[in-house]
């Protein structure tokens, strides 16, 4: 029954118009970025490399698909959580809002199965969004701008990754981004259990992300103790795969913290959803 319910959830997501807003948004933004880069990319790159040209000499195709993919991923990872929350925050509260939850919960399937099938469906949706992001950013970027070495500019220096050493980094980077976004999806799903309308969980999810991000960037000693445990701190962990050498302990730590968040949030959602009186 769990798989049938998951199949149902995927059908609902597939037929719901709002599911395509995220994919459409990503397509539009990436399209604009690629168009702008095609027109003014060299000027943009010169802004970055200009300050380094006194000490380093750059040769070859710097403005390549790998760099474009990296830039796009860096830009969009801030916005994609909103697109994910837009769909996953609606999975339970949307049913309450529409009234279908009354019918759904009178069927011979446990509430746990319904909740976890919704969680699994939200993971699949997140995977589709991340895959689409990867296809559009990296593949389309490489088709339009060709391949080449990737220059990663950081606050403490410059990393140059050779072309043959990049694909696997993108694969793992996107996998890490997927885990971060599943954490956001789980947060939205959990908040969805507490609400009877669609907007509340979406706004609350973004509010929490914003709050945690602000707390994470504020240089206040009080926050130093909690900062390493906030999921927002680890949402940029995908960038670790573009370091040389890779800090595996940091990646493992981020993975563990994100998985812990997912587990705790699912626990809260399970507790709430199983005790929820359906009054709508």
């Amino acid at each position: 029954m769990f798989w049938k319910s998951t199949y149902n959830e995927l059908i609902k997501i597939a037929y719901k118009p709002r599911s395509y807003i995220g994919i459409g948004g990503i397509t539009l933004i990436i399209g604009i970025v690629l168009f702008a880069m095609k027109l003014e990319g060299k000027y943009y790159i010169s802004l970055i490399t200009g300050q380094l040209e006194q000490s380093v000499s750059f040769e070859g195709n710097i403005l390549n698909g790998n760099l474009i993919g990296f830039i796009i991923l860096q830009m969009l990872i801030v916005h994609v959580p909103l697109l994910i929350a837009f769909v996953t925050g609606d999975l339970i509260s949307g049913e309450a809002d529409m009234g279908t939850i009354r019918l759904l919960l009178t069927k011979p399937i446990s509430r746990n199965s319904i909740l976890f099938s919704k969680f699994l469906a939200s993971c699949v949706y997140t995977a589709v969004v991340v895959l689409w992001l990867a296809l559009m950013a990296v593949l389309l970027g490489r088709m339009l701008f060709g391949g080449g070495d990737l220059i990663v500019l950081k606050s403490d220096g410059l990393t140059i990754l050779q072309q043959h050493d990049i694909v696997w980094r993108f694969v793992y980077g996107f996998a890490m981004a997927f885990l971060s976004l599943v954490t956001v999806a789980t947060l939205a799903l959990t908040l969805s259990c507490f609400s009877e309308n669609s907007i509340g969980p979406i706004v609350s999810t973004m509010g929490i992300i914003l709050l945690f991000t602000i707390v994470g960037t504020l240089d206040v000693p009080l926050f130093d103790t909690i900062r390493p445990f906030m999921f927002t701190t680890h949402m940029a962990a995908w960038r670790c795969f573009f370091d040389d050498p890779i800090d595996t302990s940091q990646i493992l730590k981020s993975t563990l913290i994100l998985l812990t968040h997912i587990g705790v949030l699912l626990g809260i959602a399970t507790y709430k959803f199983n005790r929820k009186d359906i009054l709508s």
Partner: peptide, 13 residues
């Protein structure tokens, strides 16, 4: 089998 108050369905289906 049941109908609880309004018969609500997935409008987009």
């Amino acid at each position: 089998g049941c109908i609880v108050e309004k018969p609500d369905f997935y409008k987009y289906l």
